[in-house]
Amino acid sequence: MRAFVLSCFMLLVAAPATAKEQPPDLTPVHLGVGGQAVIYNLPLTVALEQGYFRDEGLDVKVIDFTGGGKAAQALVADAVQVVSGAYEHTLRLQARGQALQAFVLASESPQLAMGISTRTLANYSSIADLRGKTIGISAPGSSTQMLANRVLAQGGLSTEDVAFATVGTGATAVQAMLSGKIHALVNAEPLISLLEQQQAIRLIADARTPAGTAALFGGPMPANTLYAKSTYIQNNPQTVQALTNAMLKALTWLHDATDAEVADLVPTPYLMGDAELYRQAFRNIQPSLSVNGRFPAEGARNALQALQSFDPAMAQRQINLQATWTNQFVDQATQP
């Protein structure tokens, strides 16, 4: 009898410990992205492949769109809760009455480049030669269109002087350039390196590095971020903190990673059949990756000025820059 009672007591003592050891329910997050395979979204891919989101108690389900503009639209429509995409969308959508806020910065440069076709614009000499031509972008309202607009404005052209074609960020964009459907293209890595390798494009603007970004925008340009509706951030601070923690782990890993380690980590289709090409593409953009996830106030001002330089609607709006970004969660993650 004594042995039975002792056995029951041990079971009762052990029960709470067993329950405590059970993994907690993972918090679901629907995250939109415009072209998950492009290197622009590499920090997100690293966080997923390394299990950093799961380590933070999150179940992140990625919904891939053709471009950043589409992902932003999905956020406004509540089809996703968070977006991995360009900071500028928080500015554009505030001008339309939507309160969005970016809470961790992944890259300090747009990681985009603009090239002209060596086939259809072989005699290109200046931006003026783009008048009446078609420029390929990933999607309307995306950062690729923003960069194209910036280049046009610097060359004295407006968006009315050209046509834009939506070509996405993958094989469709390559085919559009090689077939002559478009005369110029703004896109991300590794697609830019692929077209350069094939001598299909000649770059006329390069914002893949901080130096190239400063030449085009006058200084740092916050680019890839995680952003969400301000109400979501206010109502789900623990989830946002967990997302931030995971992305900072990914940025730390990328800061120390070799190009070979990156190529080995990403899903095979991302390599576009050429691991060495992908490695080169990563080397091209690695200097633009944020080392601490923090937003520079100067960068936010540069982003707004860039938009206002070619978008009359933005120029006429009063934008509260401070409301579009926060370092609160990065600061919390890095506290000793």
Rank of each mutant, 00 (worst) to 15 (best):
A3W: 13
F4G: 08
M10G: 15
V13F: 15
A15P: 10
A19S: 10
E21F: 13
P23M: 03
P24K: 08
D25H: 12
V29D: 00
H30R: 15
H30K: 15
G34L: 00
I39C: 08
I39Q: 15
L42H: 03
V46Y: 02
Q50S: 02
Q50M: 01
E56R: 10
V62I: 15
F65Y: 15
G67P: 08
G69M: 00
A77W: 12
A79P: 10
V83D: 02
A86C: 10
T90Q: 03
L91M: 01
Q94D: 01
Q94E: 02
V104R: 02
L112R: 07
A113W: 02
N123P: 09
N123T: 14
S125T: 15
G132S: 09
G141Q: 01
T144L: 00
L147H: 08
V151R: 02
V151M: 09
S158M: 05
F164G: 08
V167F: 07
G180T: 07
I182P: 00
L185Q: 08
N187F: 05
L191H: 06
A200D: 03
A200I: 07
R202S: 14
L203N: 06
I204N: 00
D206Y: 09
P210R: 00
A211R: 09
T213P: 07
L216P: 12
F217A: 12
F217G: 03
P220V: 10
P222R: 04
L226H: 09
S230C: 07
N236C: 05
A242M: 00
A250I: 04
H255Q: 13
H255S: 12
L265C: 05
P269L: 00
M272T: 13
M272N: 14
G273W: 03
E276Q: 14
E276A: 15
R279F: 06
R283Y: 07
N284M: 09
N284R: 15
L289R: 00
L289P: 04
L289I: 14
L289S: 05
S290W: 07
V291W: 13
N292D: 15
E298R: 13
G299M: 01
G299W: 05
N302E: 06
N302A: 06
N302G: 06
Q308T: 11
S309R: 10
F310A: 02
D311F: 07
Q316W: 09
R317Y: 06
F329V: 12
P336F: 02
